[in-house]
Design a protein around this nucleic acid. Structure first.
Length: 428
RNA sequence: GGAGAAGUGGCAGAGCGGUUGAAUGCACCGGUCUUGAAAACCGGCGACGGGGCGACCCGUCCGAGGGUUCGAAUCCCUCCUUCUCCGCCA
């Protein structure tokens, strides 16, 4: 959520900045609501003040043993109007709030302006795509032997966009998760956290998935209105909701492995084949809670932490700075990491690292105290995949494949799979 | 699932329906004292919002939401959370 005060002070700048990301701010409506709010709020507070004064007078009169009946009668009409104004004001403020909750974050000034992903800017490439002397297969083919990756079995019980993994493949995914968590906790200073996979609507409002993107989520029929988390970002970032942290607690760096659930509404026909776009997938997520003046450097560091996984796994990738048109709702700046997939002969997103400035913090009421006795201020939040595990598995299969269909395991991962150097397809 | 108890400021913990944003203690900030520190003493110290150029003024908030009342932290209702006991259970 944007700070309503900057909307009041410099509406032009906000409207312009939002236009850069293709968002048409309802300027007229806002100005009308805001004018009305001001008028109403002043009036309401006058009435409240009047009521308080009179009630005190009644209390004093009563203490002196005077007759308070006439005083009470005089407050009658006041109460009527007050009640009406209070309700109007409440109504108006929730309208204003609803409007504000629909408005995305302001893009950082360094973000390239453009309509969609075609305007993204490549920052760097790391690693060389291998040039095998055989036609590379994609992970769906490579996963066939022994039912390593069994999409048909999953489809029978759950439908499309699910997978069953067996044997070595299931273990490889588990190893990847373990490896990533170890790397981030031991070498990058993150604290591992375990969090709920079902959250209430308030948590999703805090990070920005609600109210606008409910269609992307799976809702569990329940009194509490539970949704399955689409990313660990939601529960992990919500760890600081409603908190006033000590300056000394920052930065807070947390890592969590969770399954993620996405309805993928509106993506019919896209990536229907294989592991790329599933309703359920595993992800290791990095979250940082930092002081506002530290968020620029924190984003670069977070990105480096995610890149470290790809480097360790010897996977070629490139880093993209997303354009205004391709960024998520809550982000002010986002880098995507795209891994090379020989089976597709393309770079595909495997991590997304974003800074949210104070946008999520304001919704979450996540604050810190800059110094002893100082006023609380909103923190800045950041997060990034480190990495999407399913897609990492894809990259590992496709980049590690040999002519005979076996898969070479990167050295750093071998301790996690009992020293196995390569996966050999089981013969029928 | 059943029965009971409780939710007050950063923490602990008072609070008869009436000048209570809320006693007191701790913590924290400023000062006195001290070579320095500690102790002691004095003073200050919640959050959020609105109005005003400003000194300031005003409003809201005692788990959340409703209600009663001229007036609610105090009374009533609903919900949430925590604790204790019973039952069940991975």
């Amino acid at each position: 959520m944007l700070d309503i005060r900057i909307l009041r002070q410099d509406l032009d700048a906000v409207v312009t900045a939002l236009a850069r990301r293709g968002f048409d701010f309802e300027r007229e409506r806002f100005e009308q609501l805001e004018a009305r709010r001001k008028e109403l709020q002043v009036r309401t507070q006058e009435l409240q003040s009047e009521r308080n004064t009179r009630s005190k007078a009644i209390g004093q009169a009563k203490a002196r043993g005077e007759d308070i009946a006439p005083l009470k009668a005089a407050v009658g009409q006041l109460g009527e109007e007050l009640k009406a104004r209070e309700q109007e004001l409440q109504q108006l403020q929730s309208e204003l709030e609803d409007l504000l909750l629909q408005v995305p974050n302001l893009p950082h000034t360094h973000v390239p302006v453009g309509p969609d992903e075609t305007a993204n800017v490549e920052i760097r490439r790391v690693g060389e795509p291998a040039m095998p002397d055989f036609p590379p297969r994609d992970h769906v083919d490579l996963g066939l032997p022994g039912g390593w990756l069994d999409f048909e079995a999953a489809a029978r019980m759950a439908g499309s966009r699910f997978v069953v993994m067996r044997g070595e493949m299931a273990r490889l995914q588990r190893a990847l998760i373990q490896f990533m968590l170890d790397l981030h906790t031991r070498e990058h200073g993150y604290q591992e956290v375990y969090v709920p996979y079902l959250v209430n609507p308030g948590a999703l409002l805090g990070t920005g998935q609600l109210p606008k993107f409910d269609a992307d989520l799976f809702t569990v029929v329940s009194e509490q209105g539970f949704r399955l988390i689409p990313t660990a970002e939601v529960p992990v970032t919500n760890l600081v909701a409603q908190q006033i942290l000590d300056a000394g607690d920052l930065p807070l760096k947390m890592v969590a492995h969770t399954p993620c659930f996405r309805s993928e509404a509106g993506s019919y026909g896209r990536d229907v084949r294989g592991l790329i776009r599933q309703h359920q997938f595993e992800k290791v997520e990095l979250v940082q809670i930092v002081r506002p003046d530290a968020s620029e450097t924190a984003l670069e560091a977070l990105l480096a932490d995610a890149e470290a996984v790809l480097k360790a796994l010897e996977l070629p990738y490139r880093v993209m700075l997303l354009s205004t048109g391709d960024m998520g709702f809550s982000a002010t700046r986002t880098y995507d990491i795209e891994v090379w997939l020989p089976g597709q002969q393309a770079y595909r997103e495997i991590s997304s690292c974003s800074s949210f400035s104070d946008f999520q913090a304001r919704r979450l009421q996540a604050r810190y105290r800059p110094g002893p006795g100082a006023k609380p201020e909103l923190v800045h939040t950041l997060n990034g995949s480190g990495l999407a595990v399913g897609r990492t598995l894809v990259a590992l299969l496709e980049n590690g494949q040999q002519a005979d269909g076996s898969i070479v395991i990167p050295e750093r991962l071998r301790p996690y799979v009992g020293g196995t150097e390569r996966l050999v397809p089981p013969s029928e």
